[in-house]
Design a protein around this nucleic acid. Structure first.
Lengths: 255, 255
DNA sequence: AAATTCAGCGAACAGATGTTTACTGAATGA
DNA sequence: TCATTCAGTAAACATCTGTTCGCTGAATTT
């Protein structure tokens, strides 16, 4: 048996993370099927061959990234579903949470949006499966209040799918809005390729997961100067759409 | 001034079409940013350098494809908006039209879904602009009946965006369902690279635009043996979702 | 009939790609 | 202490990429 934490394993895990983070950052400007293995290792500062110690190939890396990116979304969804407020409050909280999530993990959302219908089958399927799971969860959360009102399970499911799809839609809309807020068209600050010599330096793993400009991280309830006009418009639209859906839901069983 | 149709121009147009069709077909299995220029010319049976006689680069080709793919969708949308039936009839007709469209032009839909958030900015922006135009059109179609009921223009717009996004969503769902119907995971019949010697043979331009298995083209009202279970499930879900949205729309102005 | 245009060709280019190979040397475990 | 494990290395590989160049020969114009 091998220890689950030695200096050895820790270093390996660190390099693995570095590869994932580098990939996630590179994937902000291109899609997975055009991402090069050497490109990733170069960004990390590691020999190309080292890649194979961690992933079979790039689509393997991609599937791993799916788990990570949708994992963080999963937490958010569960938090929302746990809230037991009224309709409008829940909607506000949802839109707020999505906006905040996109602000904190823009690279995650970009990756999902891009690869959901992207060129790599394994990744597509992983995303589809995960989103399907989300829909299950949403359906399960709504069932207790809907089933007694005469909603058949398939109708609950279609509502859940609508919610999930709308959430993804909203998230990507936020992403574009936030990108438009910053100066997007011009190239951002270039990242120097990591100094050769593997990933050894730098202390304390503090919030590595963002991997793409975590943003100001301002308190959601504070006044937010960094919030762009587009972003507020997206929020308002999403809120209204969810409200409209809620309205439809309330009148579903009475023609 | 040059004639708009000579033997010269006709040949050029033919090669151009061949390039676009080949690209569209290749893009069923990969994304634009990973598509190679040589790959396209090879599929057509033309020297790599010939590509530059028609497009500046691949993203130029991509933008052209956007116009074509969304152009065909545009026709469909206008046809739907022109119908003045009741809510349910319109919904049925819409879902039916989308299903048929996806069946006829799967490559078009795949391309749009894949590149909408893909790695090529110019293409992304072209798609966004075009879809925004669709939303304008839908909004304009709904305004006459909604404005008198007290709908502010921004609310009409948000409804239109919801409809457009839902349509795209439904189309890609159909795509996956139809793909699942056929044996997808296994590679389809391989296409031999075109015989060297440019694009000269083959008579009569009959429905070249499909560029990806136009399908049986069965009458929508006939019994359809080729319709998979998944496909029917997608249709049913889409119908219900649209119905639910309609319900919400009817109750929008009375809390 | 002669001059011009221009779509497509073939060759060459510098550079990048994924993958394999034998290796090194520090962490590990007996 | 000594043998083993194994993350990362450096080099070489065959192959592919986008782009430029001058050229050809048929369609076009004069």
């Amino acid at each position: 048996m091998s220890h689950t934490s030695g200096v050895r394993q820790a270093q390996k895990a660190k390099t693995r993370r570095a590869l994932m983070d580098a990939a996630l950052r590179l994937l902000e400007d291109q899609s997975l099927s055009s991402l090069g293995l050497r490109e990733v290792t170069r960004a990390v500062g590691v020999a190309p061959a080292a890649f194979y110690r961690h992933f079979r190939d790039l689509s393997d890396l991609g599937v791993t990234l799916v788990e990570e990116c949708l994992g963080s979304l999963h937490h958010m969804i569960r938090a929302i579903l746990a809230d037991q407020d009224g309709d409008e409050e829940r909607i506000d909280a949802t839109v707020e949470a999505v906006a905040e999530h996109v602000r904190r993990y823009p690279a995650h959302i970009r990756f999902i949006a891009r690869e959901r219908h992207g060129g790599v089958r394994a990744v597509r399927e992983a995303i589809a499966a995960e989103l399907g799971g989300f829909a299950d969860e949403v359906a399960a959360a709504f069932a207790p209040s809907l089933s007694p009102e005469g909603w058949p399970p398939e109708d609950v499911r279609m509502l859940a799918e609508l919610y999930v799809d709308h959430m993804v839609m909203t998230a990507t809309a936020f992403l574009e809005a936030q990108a438009a807020g910053r100066g997007v068209p011009g190239a951002g600050p270039r990242v120097g390729q990591g100094e050769p010599g593997a990933v050894q330096e730098e202390a304390g793993g503090q919030e590595v997961i963002g991997a793409g400009r975590p943003g100001p991280l301002a308190d959601p309830r504070e006044a937010r100067p960094g919030r762009s006009e587009d972003e507020r418009r997206v929020a308002a639209t999403a809120r209204k759409q969810l409200l409209l859906i809620s309205l439809g839901r309330r009148h579903w069983r009475d023609g």
